[in-house]
């Protein structure tokens, strides 16, 4: 019974981590940007969905849509306010741009976080689940929403795979992540590929944020831990490797769940951080890294 409980809980949490980290790693793979406002964008999506259902009295689906749109808008805002001006700047040396973008996205994330707590207080909020009720399998009572979360995450990841591998635009994105110069030489506009990636990222982070809001709830305090968990999953899996991130998400998700159940919920994150440290020492490019 405990085993089944760990399997289900771990699967749902991991699926959520995987979805959150996929967008994060995609952006890095294509444009070399580590977006440290990631957690803030996820929280903003969840809070927007919460506010929409509470203040505008819309249904769960519309609220979710509003959450995803919020995340999409913030994703573009991140690109146009924090990333693009630095990429195009002539005053900042090329070699320093990466660290400038890192700082800019971090500060942008803090701005979003502070705005959320200013307007909506820092109390945790939860989005009304689309599916309510519980499902009992093998004597383990689990919210139906947990299965729903895992299913949606995998459907979205599946759609992303189809987009990247089967469509022309997707293939261009994939190519850009391998060799930006080569893609430009083939006649693709790199800036429109960037836009497409930030759009995909916005949608993924939005869905992950709203699902997190339904599953566990979020507050402006979640911003840091969410960015950190996406970051450590992506580093563990290998920067820029989508499949590596998916596997790393499951490693981290299960490690946390097993710790929480078998040792203590208080030590939940510690083993996965130790693992990250070990990987940094022994295999700095990550489990499946190319760089």
């Amino acid at each position: 019974m405990l085993l089944w409980q760990i399997l289900i809980d771990g699967f749902a949490v991991s699926a959520l981590y995987a979805l959150g980290a996929t967008g994060f790693t995609l952006i890095f793979g294509v444009s070399g940007v580590l977006n440290l406002s990631h957690g803030a964008i996820m929280v903003a999506a969840a809070v927007a969905a919460w506010a929409a259902s509470g203040d505008l009295h819309v249904g769960s689906y519309v609220a979710t849509l509003i959450g995803v749109i919020t995340s999409l808008v913030l994703s573009f805002a991140t690109y146009f306010i924090a990333v693009r001006p630095i990429q195009h700047s002539r005053q900042i040396a090329e070699s320093e741009k990466e660290i400038f973008i890192l700082t800019a996205t971090l500060l942008w994330g803090i701005i979003i976080q502070e705005a959320i707590s200013y307007f909506f207080t820092n109390n945790a909020k939860t989005v009304l689940p689309i599916i309510e009720g519980v499902v009992t399998v093998l004597g383990v009572r689990t919210p139906a929403n947990e299965y729903f979360t895992a299913a949606v995450c995998w459907i979205v990841i599946g759609l992303l795979w189809v987009l990247v591998n089967k469509t022309k635009a997707g293939k261009a994105v994939l190519a850009a992540s391998m060799n930006p110069r080569g893609v430009t030489l083939l006649g693709f506009e790199l800036s429109s590929i960037y836009l497409a990636v930030w759009a995909v990222y916005g949608v993924l982070a939005g869905i992950a944020g709203v699902l997190l809001g339904m599953f566990l709830g979020v507050s402006s305090y979640s911003v840091g831990p969410l960015t950190a968990s996406a970051f450590s999953i992506v580093v563990l899996g290998g920067l820029g490797s989508v499949s590596g991130s998916l596997i790393a998400a499951y490693v981290v998700g299960y490690l946390e769940t097993i710790t929480a159940y078998l040792i203590s919920p208080a030590y939940r994150t510690i083993p996965s951080l130790l693992l990250l440290l070990a990987v940094m020492y022994l295999r700095p490019q990550g489990l499946f890294g190319r760089r």
Binding site: D9, L216, G217, P225, T257, A260, P265, A266, R268
Partner: peptide, 12 residues
């Protein structure tokens, strides 16, 4: 007693 940072209360 649990950490005030706890987000998933399922195990508790």
């Amino acid at each position: 007693r649990f950490s005030p940072d706890t987000t998933d209360f399922t195990p508790i």
